[in-house]
Simulated scan of single mutants.
Amino acid sequence: MRTIVHISDIHFGRIAYPTVQPLIDAVRGVHPDVVVVSGDLTQRASERQFAEARDFLAQLPSPQIIVPGNHDVPLFNVVGRFFRPLANFRRYISSEAEPFYSDNEIAVLGLNTARSLTFKNGRINHEQISRVRQRFCSIDSKVIKVLVTHHPLDLPRQWRKATVVGRADMAMKVMASCGADLLLAGHYHVSHTGGTASRYPIQGYSALVVHAGTATSTRGRGELNTFNVLRIERPFVTIERYYWRVEQGIFQVFREERYQQAGEGWLLS
């Protein structure tokens, strides 16, 4: 079995500081094999905010798969936005914006969907789609393949009019051909799990999309601060939703979902 902690939308610069140390304690207590951070580490991509994010991440277990979000690209610094969009991310967080981890049970690939020309929405380019094919198609089908992006490739039904990442249709065809299993994302600050078959009717294929809400930001959009724990043991994936308990000052499991990989997709078991 492998355990992945999935946190997202930390937003240093607009953070609920009472949640930070309890989040660190909760993540450590899970003893994850991999920690995934699906973007928006900062609010305005400043050096100070990235330094805070770096110090926070240093207290979490490794290995870590960390991708940037649209808030990690400078907004008001026009030169930085268009000529060095990830300079502070690479300086303070990681030189690699598209990390990869694999062992004999899971393969986890991060893709950077943040773009200088889009202030909120994201995009995947042809080179990245080729990278997905190169990484995932060569891996044994018994290994659970996990893609991490900030901007999601699919959305909950109530968010159907919102925007998914650009070129998602093209990317999903490659995901299907390589048998990608799990798609982890953030961006909308909503916790949700669902299959891709409704939006992408690809015969014989449906991936499981797992959204994480904001772990520490004050921008909860009606949802408590939260993060996910995925316990993977093919053909099962159990997703534990940890929510912030203000009165107790701790993160606790609020909901647990168990999915089984069966035939053309994932079934709630």
Rank of each mutant, 00 (worst) to 15 (best):
T193Q: 13
F119H: 09
S38T: 12
K120R: 08
V246I: 13
A58T: 01
A107V: 04
V209T: 15
C178W: 00
S206D: 06
L75A: 13
R167W: 02
L184R: 00
S198L: 12
Q43D: 13
V27S: 03
A51V: 03
I250V: 14
P152Y: 04
G179E: 13
Y17S: 09
T113L: 02
R14A: 14
T214K: 11
L230S: 03
P68N: 07
D25M: 05
H189C: 02
P99H: 05
H126G: 09
M175V: 10
A180C: 06
G249N: 00
E105L: 08
V210M: 11
N125A: 06
G195N: 11
N70E: 15
T226V: 02
F236H: 04
G179S: 10
Q49F: 09
H150T: 00
V37C: 07
C178E: 00
P235V: 09
V143K: 10
E98P: 00
I7F: 03
T238M: 12
T113S: 10
L41E: 01
G204Y: 05
A168H: 11
M172Y: 09
H192R: 08
Y92C: 02
V190R: 04
F119D: 07
P32V: 05
V79M: 03
D181C: 11
S95C: 10
F119K: 11
A114K: 01
A185P: 04
C178Y: 00
S95R: 15
F254I: 04
P235S: 02
L183I: 12
